[in-house]
Design a protein around this nucleic acid. Structure first.
Lengths: 189, 189
DNA sequence: AAAGAATTTAGACACGTGTAAATGTTTAAA
DNA sequence: TTTAAACATTTACACGTGTCTAAATTCTTT
């Protein structure tokens, strides 16, 4: 990201960032991320290429910015007050709800972007890093045998797996089904 | 892959494929995959760029070919005769041994290619797809509640996680440690 | 409303990529 | 040894990328 998101953005920046991310999202409903070109984004957004590069390193950078917009809507700040045990399932449930809410647009995008494609990988990676951050804040007292970091990554990977199966592969689990599967895998069932 | 690996390769092809993959491997010990250019590979391999493109789509394609060379050395064909229960740990053990054997070169390569880099991702993805293929041949009778595919992916992801921790992150588990951790996570411990 | 700061713009540039056509070279079989 | 197919080489080209500059425009602040 070339533009500094920390400081208060100018009207310039707000307008430009929104235009570029909107354009990316709508392009993704049209074609695969691989075939989307910076020039194309700029043409649709009615900005010269130089402006694009004022804000983003490349198209991957813009994509990641798009995910951060989504994230702000998924993760409210009230995780800390929950008890450790149920936090995993609470978080999982929220992410499930978010996906469920946006599933129309999600499926439209995925119809052009296969599971082996770049978009899918980038998104999965981003979700993973976000969930891992949350998992790392949880102290799992139950299991002293395993290293903490390993356990956090294990929880994260398993959550991602069930989410993936619930929404992105052929089978579409309901929320209760998905949580039951997660509990079984995490041996709480 | 532009070159058809199914048919019997000519002397030309054998020589060329080996030269390119050797060059890639030795370049990876020198610098990051991101900074390696096709032109650079060709210069070191003493082949014109056009020859490269006769064999490979791009540098990612060559990288994947490099993995297939490694794979042939990891996976002997005698998996089928093992009983389902222990096959997971047997496979895990073999992959552990393979990594352990090659760890010097591995660390040299990783010193130029960080965990967030392309090389690491590509490799992980390739290992994942290979392990998943094997897992899908195993029928897990114990758990009828969970969908088969989900279970296979779960085993695959968990194995990858422990391998990653054993070799690629700061902590270096011994083989028995690693297997014990895997067993605990898969709730057999 | 005006000065100063920040942003946008247009165009040119060097670079790596991947393709295509024409031209040599090697291979293996008759 | 000859011959045709397969392969390698050379060369040239079109394309997208990312960088940079200086001028024009828009925003912010006073």
């Amino acid at each position: 990201m070339r533009y500094n998101l920390e400081k208060k953005p100018s009207r310039f920046a707000i307008r430009t960032l929104k235009t570029f991310s909107d354009t990316m999202f709508s392009l993704l409903e049209t074609k695969s991320f691989e075939t989307i070109m910076v020039s194309e984004i700029c043409q649709l957004a009615n900005y010269p290429r130089a402006t694009f590069y004022n804000y983003f390193e490349d198209k991957y950078d813009l994509l990641e910015y798009c995910w951060t917009i989504i994230k702000d809507k998924i993760y409210p700040q009230d995780f800390v007050e929950m008890n450790s045990e149920n936090r995993v399932y609470e978080i999982f449930g929220r992410i499930y709800d978010f996906f469920d809410e946006k599933k129309d647009r999600l499926f439209r995008i995925l119809s052009h972007n296969p599971l082996e494609g770049e978009l899918y990988l980038c998104f999965k990676q981003y979700m993973g890093s976000q969930i891992l951050d949350i998992m790392n804040t949880i102290h799992f007292s139950s299991d002293r045998f395993l290293p903490e970091g390993l356990l956090a990554e294990y929880y994260c990977a398993t959550m991602l797996l069930v989410l993936e199966y619930s929404f992105l592969k052929e089978m579409k689990f309901t929320k209760t089904q998905a949580i039951a599967y997660l509990q079984t895998l995490l041996k709480k069932g």
